[in-house]
Computed example of a mutant assay.
Amino acid sequence: MAQDYYATLGVGRDASAEELKKAYRKLARQLHPDVNDAPDASERFKDITIAYEVLSDPQKRATFDRGGDPLRGSGGSGFGQGFSFDDIMDAFFGQNTGRGPRPRTQRGQDALLRLTIDLAEAAFGVSQEIKVDTAVTCTTCSGSGAAAGSEPVTCRTCHGHGDVQHVQRSLLGDIRTSRPCPACHGYGTVIPEPCAECAGEGRVRSRRSISVTIPAGVDHGTRIQLSGEGEVGPGGGPAGDLYLEINVRRHPMFSRKGDQLFCQVTLPMTAAALGAHIDLPTLEADVPDTDEDTKTVPLDVVAGTQSGDTITIKGWGVPRLRGSGRGDLNVQVIVETPARMDEEQRALLAQLAKLRDEERPEALMGVNHKGVFGKIKDAFK
């Protein structure tokens, strides 16, 4: 025997197939000529490869264990004889590079469709028909890709393997590599008479209608997954999924942040000063056939409300997408100062200013809203 193959790989004689592979991977990474420029790296790499070839083959390993020569009759060293480049790559990188015939039937790709809806539809949900343009199974050939009366036949070039072998001489011996068969493109079969409708693809593009239900509470950018409504795969394979990305139109009155609704109400200064009760339109007013009682909500503006104050109406916001209940409706009050007044109105307003001692009003400054003279007083305290 030229060498102790167990010692070469650094394993015991009772090593399992997995332990042999791990030992070879480790040494192959260290000794491969592409990563190790030591003078003896190429020879040592050849030795561990021969050792792995022998010990990974049950018959050769049994011959070696009995004291025989497992390489007798294999043409010398045995390297490159029945040990392909795919076997080396499997041990070196830990994966099988052999392809084999790939199936014609494959899963289709996912599709994305952007759907624009109103704010009320996003808040309360809506069901509607949408048009989608995707690949569907060819009805002429039922997805087989072959014309009527014909069927795929075994490829004569690769004999159904899906790949072809290429042998290349090197310092390490004969290295065999596998490539997809150019005749059948790796399928292992060819279609002599393709379907005229789908040209052998097993699928065609079609525009169709589907019914979708948008759940209540979706927001701008929300994606809804519709399983099996995407592209049909090659060979009539299962369809991928369709994703609906929601785009919400701007509303003329309401804005939204999460489950909160926001709006502004402009009131004359007299209503803000004296207080007022108004019926505020709700988002439900945009929903057809909604209950009349929900189209408005009472808004109580207390006397002395300032411009910019916010009044919160609980439970009149957007329904929560994941959970129960609704957010709130936040109403910002804008107090409008009259720009034009007649003589009588001016006289009444002047009289009010005199009664409130506001004929020469003090300017309010800063976050504490203290007048100039108030700040001067505080400075002398």
Rank of each mutant, 00 (worst) to 15 (best):
Q345V: 03
I311Y: 03
T97I: 11
I334E: 15
I210V: 14
T116E: 15
Q168C: 02
G200Y: 00
G162M: 08
I246S: 04
A303L: 11
V126P: 04
T97F: 14
D4Q: 06
E292K: 14
E336V: 02
T189D: 12
G308Q: 09
P58H: 07
A303N: 09
A147Q: 05
K314D: 14
G98Q: 05
T270V: 07
G143S: 08
L274N: 08
G237N: 07
D241W: 07
T154F: 04
V372K: 00
K26M: 12
D110F: 10
Y24Q: 07
G10H: 08
V297S: 04
L115M: 08
G75I: 04
E121I: 12
I214M: 08
S170Q: 10
A350K: 14
D286Q: 13
G68V: 01
T290H: 11
P361L: 12
A51C: 06
G308W: 03
I278S: 05
E292Q: 11
V136N: 12
T213L: 14
L71K: 12
N36M: 01
C181Q: 07
Q260A: 09
H32Y: 01
E201L: 09
W316H: 15
G327M: 11
T189I: 11
A28V: 04
L348E: 12
R104A: 08
G374T: 14
L31G: 04
E193R: 13
E19G: 07
D37F: 12
M89F: 12
V232D: 01
V204P: 02
A303S: 15
I88K: 06
R99L: 15
T139K: 13
E229R: 12
V318H: 10
R179H: 14
S142C: 06
G366Y: 13
Y243C: 00
A353R: 09
T157F: 13
H32L: 00
D65H: 12
G160V: 11
P338L: 03
C141Q: 05
E284P: 01
R256N: 08
T312M: 12
D357P: 01
N96P: 00
H166I: 08
R44V: 07
K295N: 05
G240N: 01
K22G: 03
D300R: 15
F83T: 06
E121R: 08
P33K: 05
